[in-house]
């Protein structure tokens, strides 16, 4: 059986600065894969490459055997890949509903239409409502995004990520900056909304990682130190060294 996603020997340097030096790991379909690592290990750069923001300097990304590396973000999204951002990246002046609708209508091909208004289509509004329900924002759907609390903004961030009905989701530190309580709530929500999807998540919070992930890859100095089940990672000496050495 071929792997669903194979990150194959990815290198990236920014005008001489080597950020990734041969990242290589595989993700099975419907797996929940966490990428952890100390600050500056290159996690976000890796995400930017997988999601099409940057081109890798070398290496390949095989999605169902097809190399998708270097394809632009909008093409990848239409291939079923969607990502969230570490720093909340929503349309601040738009209502919560319209934020989600923007992704939903894209998924349904209503991107560049000259005559049709997006909000008048029943299928789209129903799908939007469904996503709002899932991420717990149905009550505030008519408010502008800018009026939401931090936790709600993070939920909206995930809602937008889901709005294009992806099968592969990349979440970049979804619980960053949250209180303990909010984090627990967010884990539950992420667990529910990504059921049946393939998930790659970057996280600092080890509780989040260990409660969500099936597999963990440890990124250290631009390369994968180890990739294994959470239990194994917990007692891996190299991982301890990497984190302790950093701290």
């Amino acid at each position: 059986m071929s792997d669903y996603l194979h990150i194959q020997n990815i290198h990236k340097d920014f005008s001489g600065l080597k950020v990734l030096t041969g990242v290589d790991f595989k993700v099975r379909e419907k797996e929940r894969h966490a990428v952890i690592g100390p600050n500056g290990a290159g996690k976000t750069t890796l995400f930017n490459i997988i999601s099409g923001k940057f081109k890798p300097s070398s290496g390949a990304i095989l999605l169902r055997g097809e190399d998708i590396s270097g394809k632009p973000a909008d093409v990848l999204n239409r291939h079923g890949l969607s990502r969230s951002f570490q720093i909340t990246n929503v349309f601040q002046e738009l209502s919560v509903f319209d934020n989600i609708l923007t992704g939903v209508r894209s998924r349904h091909g209503l991107r560049y239409h000259f005559f049709r208004k997006p909000a008048m289509n029943r299928v789209l509004t129903e799908k939007t409502e469904a996503i709002l329900e899932k991420v717990g924002l149905a009550d505030v759907k008519d408010q502008p995004a800018s009026s939401l609390s931090y936790g709600q903004q993070r939920a909206l961030e995930i809602g937008i990520t889901l709005s294009t009905e992806p099968e592969l989701i990349l979440l970049d530190e979804p619980t960053a900056g949250m209180t303990r309580e909010e984090t627990e709530h967010a884990i539950k929500m992420i667990d529910q909304v990504t059921a049946g999807l393939t998930l790659i998540i970057i996280e600092h919070d080890m509780d989040v990682v260990f409660s969500l992930a099936d597999t963990i890859s440890v990124l250290h100095y631009g390369t994968i130190l180890v990739c294994d089940a959470p239990d194994k990672i917990r007692c891996d000496q190299r991982v301890k060294d990497a984190y302790l050495g950093e701290g």
């Binding site: 909008d74 999204n77 969607s82 990246n89 349309f91 002046e93 992704g103 894209s106 709005s163 294009t164």
Partner: peptide, 17 residues
Amino acid sequence: LLMRENEDRMKFLGYNT
């Protein structure tokens, strides 16, 4: 209109900006 506000996000939502 949304591209002006947040072009990056539009790309990641499948829009060819």
